[in-house]
Simulated scan of single mutants.
Amino acid sequence: MADARSRAGEQQVQVFDALGRASWTFRVGDAIEHLLTDEAGDLWVGYFDEGVYGDPLSAPGLRQWSATGESLWSYRPAASADSISDCYALNVFGRTAWACPYTRFPLLRIGAGYAVRVRENPVRSVLGFAVHADRVVLFGRNGGRAGRLVDCRLTDAAVEPVAESTLVRPDGGPLGRRRVVSRGPRLHVQEEPGTEWTVLDIG
């Protein structure tokens, strides 16, 4: 578990063992937007702008840490991709991480050996996404309200929209305040008060 905000010297991440006992703590930087583990137990952390522009640990926008707090990898602008100002969306599945950061919202894939693949993406304000094979479904805002779904095809260099719809509540109403977790082909959406999850699975 982790606190999203922290100051230098504060230990904000707490690791528990299989019996629920606190094992150790460490700091990964201020302004955590997303924190997901991969199948090896390493942490992938995406940061929002206050950390990117205010804390050296958060400045890369996206980092990988070991479960004991060792820095394993930091994002550096790749060819045709800018620096990350805010990691709007992060998806971790197996040993692969995907991100869709502000400002231009390219789709980044970080694979074996930390090779970064960049795909241009015309869809803006992406808050989460599900990805499987050559398909990605982007979840984001439509006119300022969350719920937009854009079904896309992945090419070698780009994300190509195919169809668009709106994600609504089971009763047909618009989504309220919510949090989004992206895991491979699944997009998990939890609305307040946080008692139920809605899952979109494109696998």
Rank of each mutant, 00 (worst) to 15 (best):
L167Q: 12
G51N: 10
A89T: 07
R183K: 04
W197S: 15
D201G: 12
G61V: 08
P174L: 10
R169P: 04
V131G: 00
F93K: 03
L154D: 03
D171K: 02
A97G: 03
E50H: 10
Y88C: 11
A133Y: 03
L175D: 13
D49V: 10
F16D: 04
S66H: 09
V123I: 13
H34D: 14
A2G: 00
A99I: 03
A4S: 13
I202S: 09
V137M: 09
V137Q: 07
R117H: 13
P106H: 07
S80K: 11
E10A: 15
G46F: 07
E191G: 05
D17H: 14
F129E: 08
A115M: 01
F16N: 05
W65H: 08
I110Q: 12
G143W: 11
A2N: 00
L154S: 02
Q190A: 08
G46E: 05
P77I: 09
F139C: 14
G51A: 10
R76Q: 13
V159C: 06
R169H: 04
V28L: 09
W24E: 15
V92N: 04
G172I: 05
V199A: 01
D151P: 03
L175E: 13
V13H: 09
I32V: 07
T68M: 07
L57K: 01
I202E: 08
V159F: 08
A157Q: 02
W44I: 09
A18C: 04
V45D: 04
R63G: 03
L90I: 02
A40G: 02
E39M: 01
S74L: 00
L36M: 10
T37I: 08
P56F: 01
A89Q: 04
S85P: 01
R76H: 10
P77V: 09
W65F: 11
L107W: 04
L167M: 13
